[in-house]
Amino acid sequence: MSAEPVLVVEDLRVEHPGRGGAVEAVRDVSLSVGAGECVGIVGESGSGKTQLCLALMGLLPPSARIDGAVRFAGAPGGAARAVRGERIAMVFQDPQTALTPHLRIGSQMSEVLVHHRRSSGARAREAARAMLARVGIPDPAGCLRRYPHELSGGMRQRVLIAMSLLCGPQLLVADEPTTALDVTVQAQVLELLARLRREQRMAILLVSHDLAVVAGLAARIVVMYAGRVVEEAPAEALFHGPRHPYTAALIACAPNADGPIPARMATLPGQPPGAAERFTGCPFAARCDRSSERCRREPPPMTAFDDGRRFACHDPLPA
């Protein structure tokens, strides 16, 4: 918290123009990530988490309309796009499809260094081998010669993490890095991320639909719903006293956050709203057991507190 922010997002809005009117995937999201800090983003699928990540990285299709400001401290002018893959890196949800199938691991890893650091091929391969060893791949030299389909899912995710760390980024955006993996492998990958954060002194933006995944790693947690931030708080405070009813519901669904990671998250009743839906009031009102006429009518404003906590609710849970 105390460190200078490496990433600041202000009033970010992402719209995809469609034939039935624009679809608002992200609406007025603001957040910041300090240097070396791990911030978690939690929300059901469709809450705009992935769209937010892609917007940060400048990876949205050119047709998308992006408003608001994203400032990345490591880039001249603050545009993450210019230092993508170097100072800011991203790990995706599905390791099965995120690696190019016809290229060997060595080739896919070394090209990052060849491009960003102008390394020679041999030096890039040596660096790639060393990084594979650091992420706990048993036979790193052999792994470089493999094709992606010859590796297990967990190994592939390790490769992807190693690949993203090659240039020593200041910020790693990890979008559901463990969702596609077995439970035991999930734990290993999360441990790996925690260790690398300490060793490399890099910030992590950890995105998951699963509160338990984020719980162990993130110092601060941002809860998203329907493309908006509904609550943000230090992890400890969030778990012990959620103020927004949605956060409370999420916590109720996740078993003991300090205990074993559940294989499958119990789900909230009802459906999360689609990105095309428009609201006059609070987007969560329809599923909220505390909602009143006012919730359905006027959008709740974001209220910020001194302890770094903020939430948007007309009728918050008592502190």
Binding site: L59, R84, G85, A89, A98, V112, H115
Partner: peptide, 17 residues
């Protein structure tokens, strides 16, 4: 549109590559 091309973009590689 595939995931691996998105990864390649995220790595900051030039369009040509």
């Amino acid at each position: 549109r595939s995931a691996y091309v998105r990864t390649a973009f995220a790595k900051g590689l030039p369009l040509r590559t």
